[in-house]
Amino acid sequence: MHLFTSTVGRKILMAVTGLLLVGFITIHLIGNLTIFAGNEAINIYAAGLHSMPPVVWIFRLVILVLFAIHITFGIQLTVENSAATPEQYAIQVTQKTTFAAKSMIYTGLIILAFILYHLLHFTMHVVHTDAIEPYNQLVNGRHNVFGMVGTSFQSAFITIAYAIAIIALAFHLTHGLQSFIQTLGWSNGPSQDKVSAIGKLVAIAYGVLYVAIPLAFLFHILKV
């Protein structure tokens, strides 16, 4: 298929899967933020989710496919692009590009590593087994997700690991969001800078909202 081999086709696949993944992190974020709605809210939310295994699994499968496409082509394009520039300039001064744009592969890989760690931590309960202990103590007949999350983020190490990943995500989005608009051909000359600025704001918003949760526990704004 042309879409999977051509230069613009793969660019479009990166953009579309990227945006759908932003959709995923949006839903995930909304779910997470229920943690601020009292000690029970996130437990109810989690119990609700887990009462519909087919929905959860279909959702997980879709996300997996999206990630697979986004990561495969991301790496493939990066490899091709560095092969296209075998010799570096003695001096190279960039005029327009950003740190975020240049570090997409690195922020992407940090996010990938984080996702694996995050799954091992909160989904599979393989790492930080002490911190996830509260999960197994039922509160009103429901798993105590609030307690698990809260206990985890009392550890500075875990909080820092999460914060690093969220910063990487914010940078990734800074370039990704405006890139999406350009790739689908929706930008014209004058709109370019505005789209970039809005993309930056949205990326920062995601970063702040996500990082608010671990920090809230670390600084005892939320208490287990």
Partner: peptide, 28 residues
Amino acid sequence: GFGNCTNHYECQDACPKGISVKFIAKLN
């Protein structure tokens, strides 16, 4: 052997004729 465009927009600033990246959006 050219690379793929990843929207750095360096080209637009370097172009001595001021060609805009809006044409890349058009190509897309």
